[in-house]
């Protein structure tokens, strides 16, 4: 297991009189080299869980294991050195993550801070910018002058530049155009296959991850209520409902057609080709 949460609880104490439960005895095991989608309604604990992964938040109860680090609750709050280099976190709002006066400096910050030489860092920055599809001409600009989509790409590149083993991204695709979204997902998926990295993506769009993520985790009330594959998840109406998700278009259309034809909704890959093949086969068999 590259990541494991054992009975992890966390309460927010800074939000009013009564502490708000962020995580409630959460158990989760994630394997190395996979792409994992984390889904859930707002306030379900997705981002809280993510922030436990590089020690930004420390559990009140339970044990978090990341790579070969053990983060115990009630531990002296010291973060093991190297943890943050090996676990990169991309936040939900890029404007809260970027801070330098040029995009390039922002991307250099991590690698230089982790002790790389200037040449190594510059090469890492160039690679990361290319990886996310960020135009090199933008490197000299202020990150705050970029469009919202370009800013998002810069934030992802800034974390990637430090070459972490685990990459956790909180809603990385909001404000990206659909092709950039798909492109990013494809590339992140490539990182897991080619380099054995573990990629965790928090999202509220099931459809964009359906063809890429290996595992799907749904969180509600600070607990895991589902862990499994896309095929399993798209047919679990009650789990989707809890997470504020809708079944993908293909599953909805297949469901309606099946009802009209008086048969059971079949399990299939949620894409247009699979749906068309199923429908054509069905008409064939009925004639």
């Amino acid at each position: 297991m590259v990541i494991s949460f054992e009975e992890v609880s966390y309460r927010y104490r800074d939000r009013g009189m009564t502490p708000i439960l962020g995580l409630d005895g959460l158990n989760l095991e994630l394997e190395e080299g996979r792409m994992i989608a984390v889904l859930g309604a707002p306030g379900s604990g997705k981002s809280t869980m993510l922030q436990h992964m590089n020690g930004l938040m420390r559990a009140d109860e339970g044990l978090v294991r990341i790579l070969d680090f053990n983060l115990e609750s009630g531990d002296s709050r010291k973060i093991p050195p190297k943890l943050r280099q090996r676990v990169g976190l991309v936040f939900q709002y890029p404007e809260q993550q970027l801070f330098e006066d040029t995009v390039e400096k922002d991307l250099l910050f991590g690698p230089l801070n982790f002790g790389w030489s200037e040449a190594e860092a510059a090469e890492a920055v160039r690679r990361a910018a290319f990886f996310v599809g960020l135009d090199e001409a933008l490197l000299a600009q202020s990150p705050f002058k970029l469009s919202s989509g370009q800013m998002r790409k810069a934030a992802v590149a800034a974390v990637l530049a430090a070459d972490p083993d685990i990459l956790a991204l909180d809603e990385p695709t909001a404000s990206l155009d659909p092709a950039s979204r798909e492109d990013l997902m494809q590339r992140l998926h490539g990182l897991t296959k080619a380099e054995g990295k573990t990629v965790i993506v928090v999202t509220h769009r099931l459809e964009e991850l359906v063809s890429y993520a290996d595992d799907f985790v749904v969180i509600k009330g600070g607990r895991v209520i589902f862990q499994g594959t896309a095929r399993e998840l798209v047919h679990k109406q009650e789990v989707l409902e809890e997470a504020g998700l809708m079944a993908p278009s293909s599953v909805r259309i297949a469901g309606t057609l099946a009802a009209q034809l008086g048969i059971e909704t079949p399990e299939m890959l949620p894409d247009a080709a699979a749906l068309a093949a199923w429908y054509a086969g069905l008409l064939e068999s009925q004639s």
Binding site: D177, P178, S249, A276, A277, A280, L283
Partner: peptide, 22 residues
Amino acid sequence: QRCRLKAPFALQLCRELKERGI
């Protein structure tokens, strides 16, 4: 492609169906 969009799912399905004679 130029504005980096994907065809709506409905349209993708129509095209896949047409290839299968529907």
